[in-house]
Structure formats: C-alpha cells, structure tokens
Simulated assay, not measured.
Amino acid sequence: MAVRALLSGEVLGLWDECRDASREERALALAAAVDDSADSLPPADRPVGRVTALLLRLHQALAGARMAATVSCPGCRGTVEFAASAEALLGLEDKIVDCPAPLLHGGYEVVWRCPSYRDLQAVAEQPGADDPDLGAALLLERCVLSLRHEESAKASARGADLPGAVREALTDAMAAADPLADLLVDLRCPDCELEFTADLDVAAFAWAEVECRGRQLLLDVDALARSYGWSEREVLALSEPRRASYVRILTGELP
C-alpha cells in the first residue's frame, strides 16, 4: 500500500485538526491524509488493519520503524518498557482478507465482513459500549451480514441469534482475517516478573510523531520569522534540509 509524504503545512494542519478529536477520528484523519492507494473505499470502510498499515507507514516516514513506549505493570505498578517494529508488523498486511468467505460452523452458514473504523465509531456511541463484552457483541452484530442454519430455509442477519460456539468461531475467523486489527504485546515485568498483555496502539504512536513534528515546526517558524521576518507560509515552503540549516545558523551550530 502506497502512502504519500506530508508537506510541513499539512502536518501543522493535522495537528490543529486532530488535537481534540477522538481516538477513532484521529486515526482516520491521519490515515486519510497519507492514503495514496487506488482503493475506492475510504479508510473508514476498510478493515481496521488497512488503517493500521497506513499509520505504521506514517510512523516510519516521520520517525523510523522503531516504536518504543512504557506501560504500567498491573501487578506492582512498576514501569515496563517495550518496543515494536513497524516494518515487522507491516509483514502482516498481506494476510488481511478484505472479502472473507462465509463461516461454516455448527450447522450455520454466516456471511460476514471484517470490522472497520466506521463500526468502531458506531459501537463507541452506544450506551454501555465501554463494557468489553458488550462492545464485542455490538461489533460482531454489525459485521454479520446474514446467517442461515442448515435446518431452516429462512435467513437472518442477527449475530445475536448465533450460539456461543459459533460466535467464538466467528471471532477467531475475524482475528485471522485481519491480524493488524488488534495488536497485543506479551510482556514480563522486570520487578515482580508478572506476565501480562498490553495493547499496541499504533494510532497513538503515529499521533505522537505528528504532534512532535508539529511542535518543532512551530518553533522553527517562530525562530525564523523573528530573525528574518518571513511569514509562516514562507518558512514552511522551505525544504526540511534548508529550514534546518537556517535554524542551525541561528543556534550557532552552522558556521
């Protein structure tokens, strides 16, 4: 999947646009900004992993492949460091199935699709969706297109009508069809040695780099505008190497 490079002015625009947005809105705005594919579907309607792949490539373009962070141990509340590779995760992109085959399990035929960010947004707006079990049920309900039991000639489109074993099989099929949709990291606390699992929030990593780049651009604009009288547009029109060279002159790093 191709992504396009963001101009300096676009980075600042995204920073302004997304700083107060929800997690889902922010992820979609960043993905749409760099999307250079020929897919007729907007990122909001593609499998979640397709958006994750765009965000991974955005992170690579801004800061490289390495993603490092810390989480709090659920046992002792100590700090646990971890790192992931955007390049390695992108190796899972080829395993995403955009049009999955119907699930045949327990006498049921279930026609389904992978969850999208539009689904995540819709579920988040439902009362009680912060409950993990209810949220998962609401998401599955949206992704079941039709279902039929072998002993019934009538088709249904209600995922809630599925027995538990079939629902579990469908959840497993969804995870296999989009391995970038829900990224988890297995960790061990160095202090208490507790083993636990943490979410790898690619959207948060990408946003952190946009925010960092946006702050640095504002500092550059401020410094160059004060010294040379240039407007923000004129400063942002400079190439990154040229702008960095002028900043280095001002700080005395470039003789």
Rank of each mutant, 00 (worst) to 15 (best):
S245D: 12
L140F: 07
S146L: 02
P42V: 14
T171V: 03
L224M: 07
R23H: 03
A32M: 10
P42Q: 12
A27H: 11
A153W: 04
R142F: 15
C114W: 00
V202M: 08
G252C: 01
S8M: 13
G49C: 02
C189K: 00
A223L: 13
L30S: 01
A177N: 09
L139N: 11
L120S: 06
P255T: 13
L89G: 06
A137D: 04
L30N: 04
P255M: 15
D35T: 05
R118Y: 04
S72R: 06
M174T: 08
L219C: 11
Q126R: 13
D178F: 15
C99F: 01
D94I: 07
S245Q: 11
A2D: 14
E17H: 10
F205Q: 03
D182Q: 07
R57F: 05
L28F: 09
L236F: 08
L54K: 11
E87C: 03
L41Q: 05
A198M: 08
A181F: 09
L217S: 00
A177W: 10
A88F: 13
D199A: 10
P190E: 09
T70E: 15
D172I: 14
A31H: 09
G107S: 08
A21S: 13
P255G: 10
A2K: 10
V97L: 10
C76L: 05
P241E: 06
Y117T: 00
H149D: 09
G64V: 02
L120P: 12
P132R: 14
L89Y: 05
E195N: 08
C76Y: 14
A65D: 07
P74H: 09
L6A: 05
W112Y: 09
T79S: 15
C189A: 15
A124P: 15
Y108A: 12
Q216E: 14
L92D: 11
R142T: 04
S239W: 04
E125Q: 10
A198F: 09
G64K: 00
D201H: 14
A69W: 08
A155D: 11
L104A: 13
L238F: 04
D39L: 02
D98V: 03
A86R: 01
C143G: 06
G229P: 12
L217V: 01
P115C: 03
D94E: 10
A157F: 01
D201W: 03
M174G: 09
A32K: 01
E10S: 10
D222K: 07
L250A: 14
R142W: 15
W15S: 04
A160L: 12
L170H: 08
L14E: 01
L200G: 05
P190L: 13
L28W: 10
A137G: 03
V48F: 03
C143W: 08
R226S: 12
L138M: 13
C114K: 02
L104T: 06
A223W: 11
D39I: 05
G214H: 02
A44K: 01
V48C: 08
R142M: 11
V11H: 02
D119H: 11
A88E: 15
L90A: 01
P132H: 14
L28Q: 09
D45N: 05
D45W: 13
G13M: 05
S245R: 03
L183G: 04
D36R: 12
D201R: 14
D20Q: 04
C18E: 11
P102T: 01
F196Y: 12
V110P: 15
